[in-house]
Design a protein around this nucleic acid. Structure first.
Ligand SMILES: [Mn+2]
Ligand SMILES: [Mn+2]
Ligand SMILES: [Mn+2]
Ligand SMILES: [Mn+2]
Lengths: 225, 225
DNA sequence: ACAAAGATTTAGATAAGTCTAAAATATAAT
DNA sequence: ATTATATTTTAGACTTATCTAAATCTTTGT
């Protein structure tokens, strides 16, 4: 009989989960930035969530917050909804991969466990989302990331695109146009230390791309070999 | 650029639409009863909706409210969402006909026009919902009801079930168990004027049912011949 | 070690939606 | 036509979520 959380609370928990990757502390300022609200609003909200029964956050003045077990569970529930919904919107309703995020952002808060189960079943209990994100299991276990940011790779390293940032439709269309989609393999063939540009070659074709840090920081890859 | 209405506002407009059947005035008391909130809350809300720009309601003190053109359009938009969603939940996700209403009640407020269009397309642009209700068109025209309550029929009249009240799961399971579903034809073979019980025979089998007023008032039928 | 800068928290306001209790109005009954 | 009853509206309060401006910590640079 865990009391139903509001949409806003769910979005706060999700934001904190993403910023902390499930562990560690996050500052109120980071949350304010990510959620596009004032720092004062965040302080107020996190104090309320820390005072909940059971508490959803561990809050200490001037030292940010960490998710409690309950807070993390609530966040993972919504993240599971979000990622299943994105896949469903694409596979069943034909939404394009840059349109699904916004729609899922609203739907994630209102679907029942029944809906979640049925969608998962229709999709064959997938473990990865439309943009390559791992989907928490029914029991809310989140698989390890087993990948790092493309940004961190250097010349001669090979990798496979694992996951891309999905909250900017324009960026997603750009990625698709360049062939930078989850599953694609590549080799780093150059690095410029002054601007952090990375030159990569996709597949075994001669297709080359030069990507800036603001692109490579939004792509997660698995290093090969 | 019509400002986005809140879920609550949409539910008020929908309630007023149903109570007034799109025309005429409705008292604040009726709305309070239907929405399960206090009369004071209703008065407050209808005054706000009447003060909107453009106004969604016509309100006169102590004389109830009527939907304006804009209010009616907003109500029909949500009713279209609701009925398309119920059908979708049943046809695509396998929800039973007594489960869909509750889920649709929440989803109706958050789906985009894009979602609405795609669902309608997947379903083949249906004109009737899962419980027989007419579905407003894309342009928000509501087809005429062309039917009346089963309650009003008398001995020897034949009819076809057109539409049933869908907000009580138990009632829907009861109807399904009795074979009282939209499309089924029957003949009234008896009427008891003291308790308003109706005796009906379904199809041409010898299956007979006796139905009280609280059942017959929740079923809409088309009179045959 | 201390002042300046930066981040966070408090204080005070506002808007939406709800409630209960009291006041006002309308309807029905004598 | 008055009085009694029922309905509706107002008044005052509360909750959630947000803001701006002011106060208070923390961190950093010298
Ligand atoms: Mn997303
Ligand atoms: Mn969201
Ligand atoms: Mn319904
Ligand atoms: Mn609703």
């Amino acid at each position: 009989m865990t009391k139903r959380l509001s949409d806003k609370v769910e979005d706060y928990l999700k934001s904190i989960y993403h910023l902390s990757k499930g562990e560690g502390r996050v500052s109120t300022g980071q949350i304010a930035e990510d959620m596009d609200v004032s720092p004062a609003s965040v302080t107020d909200m996190v104090q309320r969530l820390a005072a909940e029964n059971p508490p959803l956050l561990d809050y200490r003045k001037h030292q940010g917050v960490a998710l409690t077990g309950d807070g993390k569970k609530a966040a993972l529930e919504i993240i599971r909804h979000h990622r299943l919904l994105e896949l469903f919107l694409h596979e069943v309703l034909g939404f394009s991969w840059d349109q699904v995020h916004e729609e899922a952002e609203r739907l994630e808060h209102v679907i029942s466990e029944e809906f979640e189960e049925r969608v998962a079943a229709v999709l064959g209990n997938p473990q990865r989302g439309l943009h390559g994100e791992p989907i928490p299991s029914r029991t809310l276990e989140m698989p390890d990331p087993d990948c790092c940011h493309l940004q961190e790779l250097r010349t001669n390293q090979r990798g496979r695109i694992q996951e891309v940032n999905d909250d900017d439709p324009g960026f997603l269309r750009y990625l698709a146009a360049q062939g930078l989609i989850p599953g694609v393999e590549f080799e780093v063939i150059g690095y410029s230390m002054y601007d952090d540009n990375l030159r990569i070659q996709i597949g075994d074709g001669k297709e080359e791309l030069v990507l800036g840090a603001s692109v490579t920081s939004q792509i997660q890859v698995k290093v090969l070999e």
